[in-house]
Structure formats: structure tokens, C-alpha cells
């Protein structure tokens, strides 16, 4: 294992976060705070509690998940796309480093940033709503698993994209709508039966549901189904990344 190489990529990527701290950390914290103000305090005060949990507190897991997904994808996709765009990827490709080590460096850094952000958002949430975490270990598991999975997904997008527009298409046109429609701001049970069924095709539902369960023991689907679906998506991403490295897709001619 080329530990020095993994460390070099990891530290290099983390340094980018601290160099762009307003964009990386402050902006998501402010936007999440605004969600709390608008949905939690202003509108939420007029909405009755959802299954015994105040609306402000109910949306906390969904909001964390929203930031986690978008930031994981954004961090990881940019992390690998930028060297491809500038041409500095030549150095990574010519270094004595395995594909697993490349992943550990890039995806590890992206996931770390997301986890830090998730924790900051949770800390911010406590300023607005009373927060309880019924199962901290499960909560942490979902936080880490989701960050890794969607960082892998972002890494795939960063390899696939051949322009800055494509880099934004999936996060903005697919992930964001799926997150909003994935029960971040409501319980799936509030929907008419037909839409409840349709919603089950949205993978984000399982993430939000499982994550919310770790806070309030409230879930739209079983915890194990949530964990299983996250595992399926993680496996799918790993297989895709393996294929990318095996074929050299958009990395090696």
C-alpha cells in the first residue's frame, strides 16, 4: 500500500476545502440554517407535529441528508474532474499508486468533508430545534455510509463529465429533485397511496428514512431495508468504479 500517496491526495484535497471554506462549509451551513428558519420556525410553527415529533425537528435528518448527498457528489466530482480538466491527472496516472489507493485519497477526502459538514449542520440544528438522537451508532453509520456512497457516485460523475455543465447536471437535475421528493420534508405516509408506491422507487427515501429512524425511531420503510438499499447503491457505485479503472474509461487512452 502506497500510504504516502493516499496521504498526499487526501491532504491535498482537504486543503482545497480549507482554502475554499466559505464555499465548502459556510455556504451549506447558511443555506441549511435558512431552511430551519423558513420551514422550521416560520412555516413549521403552523404545521402540526409529525407522529409526535415537531415539524422543525422532523426535517433535521432530511436536511442533513440533503446537504450530505449534494456535498458528497459535488466534492468528489470536482476533486477528480479538476485534475482531468487542468491536465494534472497525468501525475496520478503515472504514479506508483493502485486504483484502490486513488479512491481512498479522493473519495476518502470527499466523504470526510461531507461528514464534517453533516456534523456541523447537526450542531447548527440544535440552535433552532430540540434534537434527540435515539441511536447514535446507527446515525453515525448512515452518515458515513451515505457520505462514502455518494462520494463514490460523485467520483463517477467527475470521470464521466467532459465539461462543467455535465458536472452539474446530475446533482441539480437528478439528485436534488430526488432528495426533495425523498421524504426530506415530509413523511411518505402523508402522500396518497399511488405516490407512496412511486416514491419507493426513489433511493433517497431509504436513506432519509433510515437516518430519521436513528433520531426518532420513525421510519417510512424498515431500517434493514434502508441499510440494504444503501448497500445496493454502494455496491453499484463500486462496480462502476471498478469498471472505470479496468477499462481506463475517460482516464487512459
Amino acid at each position: 500500500m502506497n500510504i504516502y500517496a493516499v496521504k498526499a491526495i487526501y491532504v491535498f484535497e482537504m486543503a482545497r476545502t480549507f482554502r475554499t471554506i466559505y464555499q465548502s462549509i459556510l455556504a451549506p451551513v447558511i443555506s441549511t440554517s435558512l431552511y430551519f428558519v423558513v420551514f422550521g420556525a416560520a412555516i413549521g410553527s403552523r404545521i402540526t407535529a409529525v407522529e409526535g415529533v415537531s415539524y422543525g425537528a422532523f426535517i433535521v435528518p432530511g436536511l442533513v441528508m440533503l446537504s450530505l448527498l449534494t456535498q458528497s457528489i459535488s466534492n468528489a466530482s470536482f476533486g477528480i474532474y479538476f485534475p482531468r480538466f487542468t491536465g494534472t491527472i497525468y501525475e496520478v496516472l503515472s504514479a506508483p499508486i493502485s486504483y484502490v489507493e486513488i479512491l481512498l485519497g479522493y473519495v476518502g477526502a470527499a466523504a470526510t468533508k461531507s461528514i464534517i459538514l453533516g456534523v456541523i449542520i447537526l450542531a447548527t440544528a440544535t440552535l433552532f430545534v430540540p434534537l434527540q438522537v435515539a441511536h447514535p451508532l446507527i446515525m453515525l453509520t448512515f452518515l458515513v455510509l451515505t457520505s462514502i456512497t455518494f462520494s463514490l457516485f460523485g467520483f463517477i460523475i467527475g470521470i464521466w463529465a467532459d465539461g462543467f455543465e455535465k458536472l452539474q447536471i446530475i446533482p441539480l437535475l437528478v439528485v436534488m429533485p430526488l432528495t426533495f421528493l425523498g421524504g426530506s420534508f415530509y413523511s411518505v405516509n402523508m402522500l396518497p397511496p399511488f405516490w407512496q408506491t412511486v416514491t419507493l422507487f426513489n433511493p433517497v427515501v431509504y436513506l432519509v428514512s433510515g437516518f430519521r429512524w436513528s433520531f426518532y425511531e420513525l421510519a417510512d420503510v424498515s431500517l434493514w431495508v434502508s441499510i440494504g438499499m444503501t448497500g445496493v447503491f454502494l455496491t453499484g457505485c463500486l462496480v462502476t468504479v471498478w469498471w472505470i479503472f479496468r477499462t481506463g474509461y475517460r482516464l487512459k487512452a
Binding site: Y4, V11, F12, T86
Partner: peptide
């Protein structure tokens, strides 16, 4: 090809680490 926002020291040190030193 260079990392525009990195310093000379950091980018050269990065290369050393990347090559396992």
C-alpha cells in the same frame, strides 16, 4: 498542466508523496 491555486512548495511536495516517498 499545473494546479493554479497551489503554491510551488505544496505542489512539489505533493508529487513526492504521490510517488511513495
Amino acid at each position: 498542466p499545473t494546479e493554479a491555486f497551489e503554491t510551488v512548495w505544496n505542489t512539489v511536495s505533493f508529487s513526492r508523496g504521490l510517488f511513495g516517498k
